[in-house]
């Protein structure tokens, strides 16, 4: 057990350090976030969105920052896996002790943690600079939003690894990831909180993992007691992590079986 933990810890640590040291990649992500925040801030001020949706523009921007914080932290692990499957390296990586899927998840966790730190620092700074104030939250609740966001990014890493492995059958995992991302944006409430959605769409979304891993986690940023309890949020993310782990394990076993068959 100790060896297994040490093994995955080493992979995650290596990925974290590698991503932290790649200044260009981190700059790209954080600049993109800063642009998104600036554009939406101006848009909401110009359209008086706050009045229409019932939120202050300041709170809506903090909400957007929190959702983008999660989305931009998720690594594109599926692309690496797809490339390895196409080149045949996937089969050769099975020669190492331990699970290939486990390595990819550990690698994704390392990358997402590094992304989360950079996005968090820039996101909070830029949002604060634009709005001139912090969200109406206690520091502990604010921290919990961030940490749950990290957990959600890890959960999404499990999905990205699963989607990448689908390339064993389809040779191309990008369409699956693309569909996942678009559903996440729409049903997860990336731009707007689910509370302003039509009732039927809101009910539909609640049956999917997307709001539990995105919008619901950011709603405390809207202030005035928005969002469910912390414990419920932790439970929901935990359940999705468990569910995604089971799906990943199933898909990985099938992918290995398919690869071994030639």
């Amino acid at each position: 057990m100790k060896i297994i933990v040490a093994r995955f810890w080493a992979v995650a640590k290596q990925a974290f350090l590698r991503r932290m040291s790649s200044v260009l990649e981190q700059s790209g992500r954080t600049i993109l976030l800063a642009i998104i925040l600036c554009v939406w801030w101006k848009l909401w001020q110009a359209t008086d969105f706050g009045k229409f949706a019932g939120f202050r523009p300041k709170d809506a921007l903090w909400y957007l920052m929190a959702t983008e914080w999660i989305v931009l932290s998720i690594p594109y692990t599926h692309i690496d896996i797809e490339a390895e499957i196409r080149s045949g390296d996937f089969a050769f990586n099975l020669l190492r002790p331990g699970s290939y899927a486990g390595y990819q998840v550990a690698n994704g966790i390392g990358l997402s943690t590094a992304n989360w730190i950079a996005i968090g620092v820039v996101g909070i700074s830029v949002t604060y600079a634009l709005t001139g104030s912090l969200p109406d939250l206690t520091l502990a609740r604010f921290a919990s939003v961030g940490l749950l966001g990290l957990l959600a990014a890890w959960a999404c890493t499990l999905v990205m690894v699963t989607l990448g492995l689908l390339a064993v059958w389809t040779n191309d995992a990008t369409p699956f990831a693309w569909v996942w991302q678009k559903l996440q944006f729409v049903l997860g409430g990336l731009m707007f909180p689910l509370s302003i959605y039509p009732g039927w769409l809101k009910r539909l979304a609640e049956w999917t993992p997307f709001p539990h891993l995105l919008g619901n986690l950011a709603t405390p940023m809207l202030g005035s007691g928005e969002g469910g309890g912390l414990l419920m949020a932790v439970l929901q993310v935990g359940l999705w992590v468990a569910g995604f782990s089971l799906i990943l394990s199933f898909v990985f076993q099938r992918a290995v079986r398919r690869t071994l068959a030639g």
């Binding site: 093994r7 810890w9 992979v11 290596q14 590698r18 190492r96 002790p97």
Partner: peptide, 20 residues
């Protein structure tokens, strides 16, 4: 079997951990 972007020493270090 080495990691393309890593210095060779880091790859060996990682292999050491993987093989326990």
């Amino acid at each position: 079997q080495l990691w393309y972007h890593l210095p060779v020493r880091d790859s060996w270090q990682l292999l050491g951990r993987i093989y326990g």
